[in-house]
Design a protein around this nucleic acid. Sequence first.
DNA 1: GTGCACGTTGCCATCGGGGCAGGGTCAAGT
DNA 2: ACTTGACCCTGCCCCGATGGCAACGTGCAC
Lengths: 131, 131
Amino acid sequence: MNIGAAARASGVSAKMIRYYEEIGLLPPAGRSANRYRVYSEAEVHTLGFIRRARSLGFSVPKIAALVALWRDKGRASAEVKAIAEAHVAELEAKAEALATMARTLRHLAAHCHGDARPDCPILEDLAGKAD
Amino acid sequence: MNIGAAARASGVSAKMIRYYEEIGLLPPAGRSANRYRVYSEAEVHTLGFIRRARSLGFSVPKIAALVALWRDKGRASAEVKAIAEAHVAELEAKAEALATMARTLRHLAAHCHGDARPDCPILEDLAGKAD
DNA sequence: GTGCACGTTGCCATCGGGGCAGGGTCAAGT
DNA sequence: ACTTGACCCTGCCCCGATGGCAACGTGCAC
């Protein structure tokens, strides 16, 4: 299977497959006589694993750790759980930071007339009223 | 006031002040005879505005629009409110996306023993059990 | 044999910064 | 006067994960 077919089969773009190989997340793919990268079903399976991990917001280094544990049939599930829980905490912290910004701004916007008049509590706050 | 003093007074790093000038968010600062950038209190005030807008997650282009409205004493508050509400929607969408990832992963982790045994629903899910 | 689809590598851009190198400037202390 | 240290200047490289483009090689179908 060439890279394009592997990309279609896994949902990971050819560009990203090369990138993952370049940064060491994937071992160098085998090459056919014409120097084209060749992928097996197992490698496509790994690419799908990576895609799903990315969709849960895992960074590439964390995914590397997860893939290593996945390959290690004797892993302790505690190790996986620890990575996952640390990531959940990170995600929740980021989500809360964004939600806090949204609440603050929503509150400011609620007090803004939103008409043709120029006075606006949003600008007043940004200008340092509450500094 | 030189750039270092302006940075301390505004809370924006000297590096970022130069960056904002370079990308056009700030007009080129005046220069003293030795080519040092010179800042007035008004410019420091603008920098504080930018810093607070950044802390609410506004992108640089949006901040450029907000600064322009701030300067325009005849602005309609509706314009400011529209930018703010669009940004609130963006923030909430991103926060919700992260929160959804966190919930999904938290759910998977809750079903993981987290002990020395190797079986782990987190890895099973990533491997495509639910693909 | 020709054209198209696909592969290869390499470079540039994103965004909001951090950091460092190499050099100029200035003020205070010796 | 001379040195030292703090500050300033510009320009470059780095981060993460991804997209895009250029220039060029390959393979297959007609």
